[in-house]
Every structure is written in C-alpha cells, then in structure tokens.
Amino acid sequence: MSCPALEEAPGPAAEGPDGKLTALGEVAEVAGGALSLTVVRAELARIVAARQAHDPHLHHLDGRELLGPDEAEDLPDGLHPTATAYRRMGKRFAARAFANGGPFSPDDHA
C-alpha cells in the first residue's frame, strides 16, 4: 500500500498540522542510509527474487498493487485506508493470489 509521506522521505513520522501523516526525516538522509518506503520495497523485491531460486513457494507482492499512489484520497490521515479501500484491497489481493495463475490458485496445486 502506498503511504505518500514516507515514499521518498524516511521516518519517523508524526501527525502534521493538517491531521495527516508527515515524515520527520529528510529525503537527503536516504543517501546516507536512511530508509524510505521506496528503498525498503526495492530491497524486499531484490531479496525475494534472489531467494526464489531456492524456494519456488516464496512470493512477493508490492503493496502498491493493492492500494496505489493514485488512491491517496482513500487514506484520510495519510496512512490508514477507509473501509471501502480495505474491501478493494482484499478483492485485489484475492485476484492476484487465488485466481488462475496466482501463487495460491487451486488449479496450480491439484
């Protein structure tokens, strides 16, 4: 899932004056090793890809496929999805995980 305040800037995070989540870290800190969501996502994808060679049952799903950056209106406080967004995320997860060709598809495990 996307979190606009922490995509490029590292935490910690706090509630800003507008009631939305804001990063307290600076984007420039990432170059020195601080972690933004972009850095963490890239590292997780790299690690999973490397380990899949030894474990074909290991899967990775970028949370932005469930709730993307263009859906920020579904995060009223900049972090927590609305009930409608949670339902949409669940449907998207089920479509990717359990549908034909997904990692948990009944067709793939018969």
Rank of each mutant, 00 (worst) to 15 (best):
M1T: 13
S2E: 09
P4R: 11
L6F: 06
E7V: 12
E8A: 14
A9C: 14
A9E: 11
G11Y: 05
G11Q: 06
P12F: 02
A14S: 12
A14P: 00
A14Y: 00
E15V: 15
G16K: 04
G16N: 07
G16V: 06
P17H: 08
T22E: 15
T22N: 02
L24V: 11
L24I: 10
G25D: 07
V27P: 12
V27F: 05
E29Y: 02
V30C: 03
A31T: 07
G32F: 04
L35P: 00
L37H: 12
L37G: 10
T38G: 15
V39G: 01
E43Y: 10
L44A: 12
A45F: 07
A49Y: 04
A50H: 08
A50E: 14
Q52N: 08
Q52R: 15
H54R: 12
P56M: 01
L58F: 02
L58D: 01
H59Q: 09
D62S: 04
G63Q: 03
R64M: 08
D70W: 06
E71V: 07
E71H: 01
E71T: 04
L75M: 03
L75Y: 00
L75H: 02
P76C: 02
D77N: 10
D77C: 05
G78T: 06
L79M: 09
A83I: 04
A83Q: 09
A83P: 07
A85R: 07
Y86I: 10
R87W: 09
R88Q: 12
R88N: 06
R88W: 00
G90K: 02
A95P: 02
A95G: 10
A95C: 03
A95W: 03
A95S: 12
R96S: 10
A97E: 06
F98C: 14
F98V: 10
N100F: 13
F104H: 12
F104E: 10
F104L: 15
P106S: 08
D108M: 12
D108W: 01
H109P: 04
